[in-house]
Design a protein around this nucleic acid. Structure first.
Lengths: 335, 335
DNA sequence: CTGTTAGCGCCTTCAT
DNA sequence: ATGAAGGCGCTAACAG
């Protein structure tokens, strides 16, 4: 079934049918209704290939992410699919896993499918110099949108969160509330994780306390038991922190579990700060004090920028979101 | 750049170029090489639209789900994208939200993109008679794969889990371990949720105990606070259960939170059973005893079936997975 | 407002 | 083994 069939049934030309499909204003209400009725009756849907052939666009956005079973990614994905669809775009999903070196392969897959743009969720991809150049080059053929990543280049648009100032600020807050021994816990060396790490270190440095009062701990394996044993080692061999800042809520949850296993009282003995204001932070007991990394806003902003680019505008390349700390139970400031 | 350009440069016809692109054997090695060289030199990639127009396939599978930020869905999505890509298929994502009545709209979107098959994650879509008929009808134009749902129809392939016997079995286990007052907690009326509910009720019925010793509680709102207050009401106005079976780990986590808030000891005073063996069950303390709904196996099986269908085989329509209970901390049987 | 028609780039018979 | 030509379904000029 094609527009010819519809045209025949409706006694109009295919051009009129095409106009109706594309909401052209130059169709009388009467014909429009007639055609619409027949399309509905026959359950007609225009062939995208034929359409794409002419327009050279498939109204499809490639979404590149590591793994949708990560809750941060999953949320972003959910937002994007919805917002893009509301604007007439489909989402072609491409999951690279955590091996960031295959970026080229995945970008090529998306480009070969003629997606109109690529959205990259997560800052893992912006790690190596090779990857950066790859992204810059790919941006010559289609616009690229980075979520939570920063890369200055033509046709590359970034939305990211001010992680540096967020962790820096939280260090201040912890210190000002009497927490002197601090630990930063993280599990990734992505660009965003680095910003968090740097903010933490900067915050600690500003305190002008001896450096043995704070430390950082990288969890190379993402397995819960390994991380718990890593924490056990740290508490035993290094020091017992009064505050732990985790690079995401998942890690913070593991800290809570560790604390319960070891009868550490939270927040009395130990304050815990999560990151992302995810469902975890609300599901746990005590509820996690967490940094709201503004994921929804980042996604929203990216989609808006994307639409502007498609409209031929030249929007700002860079959007930086201000930090926002959500105080719940695992740490409360006195002020 | 198109095959005409290549054809000109190579002094052959477009047909020959096309043959080279499609690895037709009827091209001399010499011409093949010549054409290949020129394509490489110019970095030519065939236009997918033009190709799709003729072939009417894009090697793309439509994945229809409610919301990828649900962890069950997210996991399934992750499995599918990976396995499909390994077999040369892309994934077009389509999220319907929880409004199951718009199914037609979403199926049409996918069909209009000429996907080669549709995978539907979750049994929510198989609720109404209308939806069932819709699926049956759509299956006339392309194969449909249901994950965790059952519908007997041509060209519809189901993989689902034996929820009925899982909850039935867990009721037995609870009872045999001295838990007499039981509550089933659920938050959906999907087909799968119904199977769980029925299994629970059947299990209870078999016990031949007075019916006031067990009950079921539907959480209409998915908000954590509402569910906790719902639980509070139940404990106050109905009875204090000795075992709670939740329809997913998320709900079970909320029960744990509720228990901690109210100083209910788990599993001493109250046993809790989750469902799905998700990350929640491992992240909580105490860890959740949970039913492993075999998601990976379901996905794996679906992809295998899909490949068989595309190969022209006629695989079994239905796959039912046996129940599997993972004992952790929130309930341990004595045996 | 509506109809006619020329592509869009590729694949596939049918000739040669 | 290669070339010529029609067709896939739709859009956008252009003509009325």
């Amino acid at each position: 079934m094609n527009i010819y069939d519809i045209a025949n049934r409706a006694n109009v030309s295919i051009a009129t049918v095409s106009r109706v499909i594309n909401n052209s204003p130059k169709v009388s209400e009467k014909t429009r209704k007639k055609v619409h009725d027949i399309m509905d009756e026959l359950g007609f849907t225009p062939n995208v290939f034929a359409r794409g052939l002419g327009l050279n666009t498939m109204k499809t956005i490639g979404i590149l992410c590591s793994d949708p079973s990560d809750i941060y990614v999953a949320r972003a994905l959910s937002y994007f699919e919805k917002m893009l669809r509301e604007n007439g775009y489909d989402s072609l999903l491409c999951c690279s896993g955590y091996d960031t070196e295959n970026l080229k392969k995945y970008i090529n897959i998306l480009i070969s499918k003629s997606v109109d743009a690529i959205i990259m969720i997560g800052s893992k991809y912006i790690s190596s110099r090779d990857n950066k150049n790859l992204i810059k080059n790919s941006a010559k053929s289609l616009p690229i949108f980075l979520i939570n990543g920063f890369l200055k280049a033509d046709n590359v648009y970034c939305s990211y969160y001010d992680d540096f100032n967020a962790t820096k600020k939280i260090v201040d807050m912890l210190y000002n509330n009497g927490k002197r021994k601090l630990l930063f816990l993280y599990n990734s060396t992505s660009q965003s994780a680095k910003r968090k790490l740097d903010g933490f270190l900067k915050g600690c440095k500003n305190l002008k306390e001896p450096t043995d009062k704070f430390d950082t701990l990288l969890c190379e394996e993402n397995d819960i038991d390994s991380i718990i044993s890593l924490l056990g080692d740290f508490f035993e061999k290094e020091f017992f922190p009064e505050g732990i800042v985790a690079s995401d809520d998942f890690l913070a949850m593991i800290v809570l579990k560790f604390a319960k296993q070891n009868n550490i009282e939270i927040p009395g003995e130990l304050s815990v700060i999560g990151y992302d204001n995810s469902i975890f932070s609300k599901l746990s007991y005590p509820e996690l004090t967490t940094i709201d990394s503004g994921l929804f806003s980042l996604c929203k902003h990216s989609v808006n920028t994307l639409l502007k680019v498609f409209d031929g505008d030249s929007p700002e390349n860079i959007c930086l979101l201000k930090p926002d700390i959500i105080e719940k139970d695992t740490f409360r400031s006195k002020t």
